[in-house]
Nucleic acid binder design. Structure first.
Length: 275
DNA sequence: AGGGGAACCCGTACGC
DNA sequence: TGCGTACGGGTTCCCC
């Protein structure tokens, strides 16, 4: 489930690997991943375009093209952007939905087992409109404790749910919301508006800290996530809350509790040290 | 405005 | 063992 650190890892890998490469051929095998563009139109727009940059916004991998268009990939749960150096055989190719052949003989695949991920082609105007709908980047300088506090004060929704709202803060999903709240010792079910400025300072530092550490570890591969080389991220070993229900809290030793009470999503917390 | 629910998709887990 | 069904999970969209 690529959240910010996983998407950042993919985008950085691709930037190093295929920046400057020209797309020579486009094959669409499963057109239902496409959004707002037909297979035919996508192929026409991408053929002979050069990839000038790969970067991340929220949980999106964005490939800037020299045509001014942007290829925007949202991997959701099982999507992966994989570079094929020529070694891909049957198994690696079986879930490929889209293949971009490059001018150096390699290919970039968008593979997605469950196909809930999406691929869109946007011109600059449309991308800006879309990006404007998304919230602040938590690793941006502007993401201060004051900013976070203002976001939280505006609603009585559970603080965990607010952290995951992409229109408010971009890139945090279920795993890192659980982790950040554990680090900050805040109960995920608390009304967001009840979080004090002092607590918001600690929460901001916890969010930034866990995201940066996860990027360092190349992400969390709990189940499906793979980077552009098909490799797993190692942050799963560092998780303190997510997936550890019933296991002892590494801070106080009490058993962590799992619930689905907030927005129907798996939440794990230490009821002793998260208040 | 904010909340609830469905749709999207298919591998996996589970029940019989 | 085989078959059928429920479930999960982020985002979008529709309706109340």
């Amino acid at each position: 489930m690529p959240e910010l650190p996983e998407t950042e890892t993919i985008a950085r890998d691709l930037d190093g690997a295929i920046r400057g490469r020209k797309i020579t051929k486009v094959s669409v095998r499963k057109a239902d991943v496409l959004r707002g563009v037909t297979a035919r139109a996508l192929a026409k727009s991408l053929r002979n375009a050069t990839i000038v940059r790969s970067w991340r916004r929220a949980k999106l991998v964005v490939l800037d093209l020299d045509t001014g268009d942007r290829l925007v990939v949202q991997p959701r749960f099982t999507g992966a952007l994989l570079i094929d150096d020529g070694g891909f055989t049957g198994p690696e190719l079986s879930y490929s939905t889209l293949r971009l052949e490059l001018d150096d003989g390699r290919s970039l695949h968008y593979a997605d087992v469950r196909r809930l991920g999406t691929v869109a082609l946007m011109n600059a105007k449309r991308f800006d409109e879309y990006s404007r709908m998304l919230g602040i980047e938590p690793l941006d300088r502007a993401f201060t404790a004051k900013h976070l506090s203002a976001v939280l004060r505006a609603t009585s929704q559970p603080v965990k749910k607010v952290l995951m709202e992409q229109r408010k803060i971009a890139g945090i999903g279920n795993i890192y919301a659980n982790e950040a709240l554990w680090r900050a010792r805040i109960d995920p079910s608390r009304p967001a508006a009840s979080v004090s400025l002092e607590e918001a300072k600690l929460l901001r530092a916890s969010i930034v800290g866990v995201l940066e550490a996860a990027i360092e570890a190349r992400g969390t591969s709990f189940r499906d996530y793979r980077d552009a080389r098909g490799k797993r991220g190692s942050f799963v070993e560092k998780l303190e809350a997510y997936g550890r229900g019933g296991l002892p809290c590494r801070r106080c030793g009490h058993k962590l509790v799992s619930t689905h009470a907030i927005d129907g999503r798996a939440t794990t917390l230490c009821v002793t040290c998260q208040r």
